[in-house]
C-alpha cells in the first residue's frame, strides 16, 4: 500500500520543463532590463512632455516642447533643416556603403577559394573591433587641410590636387561608411553565401552570361539582404553624432548648406540649455524618423519575402 503511494507520487515527478532553475535563471536578466532598459525608455517617452519651471523639470503632460520644436522647424533653430541634412548625409552614405560592401562580398564568395574565405572575412570585419572614435580621429589626421593626404601630395609635387574634404558632409559620410561596412559585410555575407550554387550553375549552363546570371539570379536573391543592409545602415547613420561632429565639424557644408545634422543639434541643445525635457522631445522625434525608415524598408521587403515563399 505504502509502496504504491510512493509510486504514485513518483509518477507526478516534475518534467524537465518545470524547474525552479527557469525562474532563477531568467530573473537577473529580466530585472536588469526592467530597471535599466524599460524604465529609462518609458520615462524617456514621458519626459518629453514635461515642463520646465525655474530651470528645473516639472512632471506634466504638456505639448510645450513639441510646439516649440515644430515652431522652430524652418526658422530660428532650423530643426527641419537639421533633419533634412541628416537624411541627405545618411541615405547616400548607406547606399554607397551597401553597394561597395555588396561588391566586396560577391568578390569574397565567388572570387576567393573557400579555404581563404574565412581569412578574408576576418580581415574585413576586424575594424569593427577597433574604437570608432579613434578611427574618426585617424580620418581627421588623414583628411585635414595640412593632413596626411595633402602634405603627401605637396611633398611629391602634386600640390594642385590637394583635397578640401575636411568639415564637409562628404567627410562625415566617409566616417560613417567606414563605421558601418564591417557590420554590413556580415549581413550581406550571410545573404550571398546562402544563395544556392546550383541555381547559378544552371543559369550559366543554359547560356546566360555572367552579367545576366548576376542580374537575373544573384541580385533578386540578394534583395532582402540588400534592403536590410541599407535600412540598417541608414538608421545607424541617422543616430550617429560623432562623425558629423568630428569630420563634419558640426555644421559641415553640403548641397543643403552649412547645417549640422539633427543628432548634432540634439547634443548641442543638451550642452547649451538646461531644458532636458526638450532635448528628450527632440530625441523622440529622431526615434519617429528612424521608425519611418524601418517601416519603409519592411514595406519594400514584403514582396521579396512573399516571392521567396512561393
Amino acid at each position: 500500500m505504502e509502496n504504491s503511494a510512493i509510486a504514485l507520487r513518483g509518477a507526478k515527478v516534475r518534467t524537465p520543463n518545470q524547474s525552479w532553475l527557469r525562474e532563477f535563471c531568467l530573473l537577473p536578466a529580466v530585472a536588469w532590463y526592467g530597471v535599466f532598459f524599460f524604465g529609462p525608455l518609458c520615462f524617456f517617452l514621458w519626459f518629453g512632455f514635461w515642463r520646465v519651471e525655474d530651470y528645473s523639470p516639472v512632471a506634466d503632460f504638456s505639448l510645450t516642447n513639441y510646439r516649440e520644436i515644430f515652431a522652430n522647424m524652418f526658422t530660428g533653430s532650423n530643426y527641419g533643416w537639421g533633419i533634412a541634412q541628416s537624411l541627405w548625409v545618411s541615405v547616400p552614405a548607406a547606399l554607397i556603403a551597401t553597394t561597395c560592401t555588396y561588391l566586396v562580398v560577391l568578390a569574397i564568395v565567388y572570387g576567393v577559394p573557400a579555404r581563404r574565405q574565412r581569412l578574408a572575412l576576418l580581415l574585413t570585419v576586424a575594424p569593427f573591433w577597433s574604437s570608432y572614435l579613434l578611427r574618426l580621429y585617424a580620418w581627421q589626421i588623414i583628411l585635414a587641410r595640412e593632413g596626411a593626404i595633402n602634405s603627401l601630395l605637396t611633398a611629391i609635387g602634386l600640390g594642385e590636387w590637394r583635397i578640401a574634404l575636411m568639415y564637409t558632409q562628404i567627410a562625415t559620410r566617409i566616417g560613417l561608411i567606414h563605421y558601418v561596412t564591417p557590420i554590413l559585410i556580415i549581413i550581406l555575407y550571410v545573404t550571398v553565401s546562402n544563395i544556392d550554387r546550383a541555381l547559378i550553375d544552371v543559369s550559366r549552363n543554359l547560356g546566360a552570361t555572367r552579367l545576366q546570371t548576376f542580374r537575373k539570379v544573384i541580385l533578386p536573391l540578394s534583395r532582402v539582404g540588400l534592403i536590410t543592409s541599407v535600412s540598417f545602415a541608414t538608421i545607424i547613420c541617422l543616430g550617429d553624432f560623432l562623425s558629423g561632429s568630428l569630420l563634419g565639424g558640426g555644421g559641415g557644408t553640403s548641397l543643403i548648406g552649412r547645417v549640422p545634422t539633427f543628432p548634432d543639434m540634439i547634443m548641442s541643445e543638451y550642452g547649451s540649455s538646461s531644458n532636458l525635457p526638450r532635448t528628450t522631445a527632440m530625441a523622440s522625434i529622431l526615434v519617429v524618423i528612424m521608425l519611418i525608415v524601418l517601416a519603409i524598408s519592411i514595406r519594400l521587403m514584403t514582396p521579396a519575402l512573399k516571392g521567396n515563399r512561393r
Binding site: P40, F43, G239, D240, I266, T279, A283, M290
Partner: peptide, 15 residues
C-alpha cells in the same frame, strides 16, 4: 541608437 538610450538613461538616472 546610443543617442536615444543615452538621453533616456540620463533622464531617469538624474531623477
Amino acid at each position: 541608437p546610443g543617442l536615444i538610450l543615452g538621453v533616456a538613461c540620463l533622464g531617469l538616472l538624474s531623477r
